[in-house]
C-alpha cells in the first residue's frame, strides 16, 4: 500500500501530462528519432488564432470543430524525405472522433481508437486528440517509420474517450461503421455528401450532425443524416427548408422518389432532424428516419 502510494506520488505529474493538457507538453515524450528519420527544426504549436499560419487555406476544416491547438514536429532522413507529425487537441473525444471521421478512405491501421493508413498518410484518434502523420518524399520508404511513430504516440494520448452520443442513435443493422462521420457545419457535409449548394439545413457550429451509410443484409441500402439543433423550432424550420429546396415533390410523410437515386425523406423529432438519401424503398427510408426517436429496441 505504501509502495503504491509512493508510486502514485512519483508518477502523478507524468500521469497528468499523459492525460492531455497543452500539446506542447507532449513534446519531450515523443521520440526524436524513428528508424532513419530524425526530428528536424523546432517543434511548433498553433492555436485557434495562429492555425492560419500553419494551414494555408485549410484552417476552417479544424476550426469548424472545437479545435484547441496542434503540436507539429517534422522529421527528415538523409535523403531529405520528410515526415510531419501533427497532434491536435480537439477539446473532447467527440470532436477528435469527428475530425477523424470526416476523411476516412484507407484501411484500418490498428492504432489508437480508430485509424487508417494509406501511402503517405496515417490518421488516428485517441481520447481528445487527433493525429496525422504525412510524408513528403518517398512514401514507400517511410511506411514503417510512419506506423512506428504512430504506435509510439498513441499511448501518450490516453485514456480512451467515448465517440459522440449521437452515434448511438444510428440503427445498428446494416450500418457501415467505417463510413460514419460526425461534424457540425455545412463545410463538412458538403465534402461528405452533396445535399445542396446552399446551407438548406441551417447547419452551424452549434448543430451536431451524424452521416451514416447502410447496406443491410436484406439488400436494402441508404444514407442517413441526423442533425441535432439547439431547439425544436430550428429543426422544424430546417425540415421545411429541406422539403422546399431538395424534395419539393415529397408526400405527406416527407418522402419522395428521387429519380434513379432511390427514396429520400425528411422528418423531425423534437430538436433532431433525420434526412434519408438514396434509400432502396420508402419503407427502408422510414425505418432509418425512425432512428431519431431513440436507439433501436
Amino acid at each position: 500500500m505504501r509502495l503504491a502510494r509512493s508510486l502514485m506520488v512519483l508518477f502523478a505529474p507524468l500521469m497528468i501530462v499523459l492525460a492531455g493538457g497543452p500539446v506542447e507538453k507532449l513534446g519531450p515524450q515523443i521520440p526524436k528519432q524513428v528508424l532513419d528519420w530524425k526530428a528536424s527544426g523546432p517543434d511548433r504549436v498553433f492555436d485557434r488564432k495562429t492555425l492560419y499560419d500553419y494551414m494555408d487555406g485549410g484552417a476552417e476544416v479544424y476550426l469548424a470543430f472545437d479545435f484547441r491547438e496542434v503540436f507539429v514536429r517534422a522529421y527528415a532522413d538523409a535523403e531529405e524525405n520528410e515526415l510531419t507529425l501533427d497532434i491536435y487537441d480537439m477539446g473532447s473525444p467527440a470532436e477528435a472522433f469527428g475530425i477523424f471521421s470526416c476523411d476516412r478512405q484507407d484501411p484500418e491501421a490498428g492504432i489508437g481508437q480508430g485509424s487508417e493508413y494509406g501511402p503517405g498518410l496515417l490518421r488516428f484518434w485517441r481520447g481528445s486528440h487527433f493525429v496525422s502523420i504525412t510524408v513528403s518524399g518517398n512514401e514507400d520508404k517511410a511506411e514503417q517509420a510512419v506506423l512506428a511513430l504512430g504506435k509510439a504516440v498513441a499511448p501518450l494520448l490516453g485514456p480512451d474517450g467515448a465517440p459522440p452520443e449521437m452515434v448511438k442513435l444510428l440503427p445498428a443493422e446494416g450500418l457501415r461503421a467505417a463510413k460514419t462521420a460526425y461534424f457540425h457545419d455545412n463545410v463538412h457535409l458538403g465534402n461528405r455528401y452533396f445535399v445542396s449548394s446552399e446551407n438548406v439545413l441551417d447547419l452551424d457550429p452549434r448543430t451536431e450532425c451524424v452521416f451514416a451509410e447502410y447496406a443491410a443484409a436484406s439488400g436494402d441500402s441508404g444514407k442517413l443524416l441526423l442533425v441535432r439543433y439547439p431547439d425544436a423550432g430550428r429543426a422544424s424550420a430546417a425540415a421545411a427548408s429541406f422539403l422546399k429546396s431538395v424534395l419539393p415533390a415529397a408526400d405527406a410523410d416527407g418522402a419522395a422518389r428521387t429519380g434513379d437515386k432511390g427514396w429520400s425523406m425528411v422528418t423531425t423529432h423534437g430538436a433532431v432532424l433525420a434526412a434519408v438519401f438514396e434509400a432502396t424503398s420508402k419503407d427502408f427510408a422510414a425505418r432509418l428516419a425512425a432512428s431519431i426517436t431513440g436507439p433501436p429496441k
Binding site: 476523411d103 501511402p119 498518410l121
Partner: peptide
C-alpha cells in the same frame, strides 16, 4: 484532397 493540408500525392 486528403490529410491535414488537403494534399496527398496519391
Amino acid at each position: 484532397g486528403r490529410g491535414p493540408h488537403n494534399f496527398s500525392r496519391r
